[in-house]
Computed example of a mutant assay.
Amino acid sequence: MPFRAYDQHCSIAAALEVLGERWTLLVMREVLLGRRRFADLKRRLGVAPNILSDRLQTLVDHGLLIRERYADNHPDAFEYRPTRKGVDVQPVLLTLMAWGDAHATPPGGPPRVAVHRTCGHEAHPQLHCTHCGDALSPRDTQIGPGPGANAQQRAEPLLPASA
């Protein structure tokens, strides 16, 4: 899909065009948890069928999901499988879950936790510098112009200017 994001030359705005509707991220959560059939998604999410259908079509149109028939004898028997692009949403969901755990968790603690498949222990997502490997906190990062920056973005200094 083309980079639209209205008049905002911004990857976050472009991502929100695809993922910004409330139900869209919840649909992706369920699909990435292995729930792939329309009826299962509708039941788990409690969403109206027309909204679910619209969100699924958006995710298919943008290449995050593929729609596959799972029963030849039933014409409407489809399931939705994540593409590589769809699987790449998982870190976004894990980070959003971590934020929710820290700032919006219900009494009693988080309803779900991430578990590392390799060691079987609870995992907490953390961003790291690809150059030195250090963990990144919000105070450790600034945003600068990238290769696709427009003239206005290239003219700006690293933001925020100070931590």
Rank of each mutant, 00 (worst) to 15 (best):
F3G: 10
A5I: 03
A5T: 07
A5Q: 08
H9W: 15
L16H: 06
E17G: 12
E17L: 02
E17T: 03
V18M: 00
V18W: 01
L19P: 05
W23G: 14
W23E: 11
E30P: 00
L33S: 04
R35P: 02
R36V: 04
R37T: 09
F38T: 07
D40M: 03
K42Y: 02
R44L: 14
G46K: 01
G46S: 04
V47A: 06
P49F: 10
N50Y: 14
I51C: 04
L52K: 07
L52M: 09
D54F: 15
D54V: 12
R55K: 15
T58Y: 12
V60T: 09
D72F: 06
D72R: 04
D72L: 04
H74T: 13
D76H: 08
A77N: 04
R81A: 13
R81L: 15
R84S: 15
R84G: 11
K85I: 13
D88T: 09
V89L: 00
V92E: 03
L93H: 01
T95D: 05
T95P: 02
T95Q: 06
L96W: 00
M97V: 01
A98W: 01
A98E: 09
A102K: 07
A102L: 07
A104V: 04
T105P: 06
P110A: 15
H121R: 04
A123C: 06
T130M: 08
S137G: 12
D140M: 11
I143A: 05
P145Y: 08
P145L: 01
G146T: 11
N150W: 02
A151Q: 08
Q152S: 10
R154F: 08
E156A: 15
E156K: 12
P160K: 07
S162C: 02
A163Y: 13
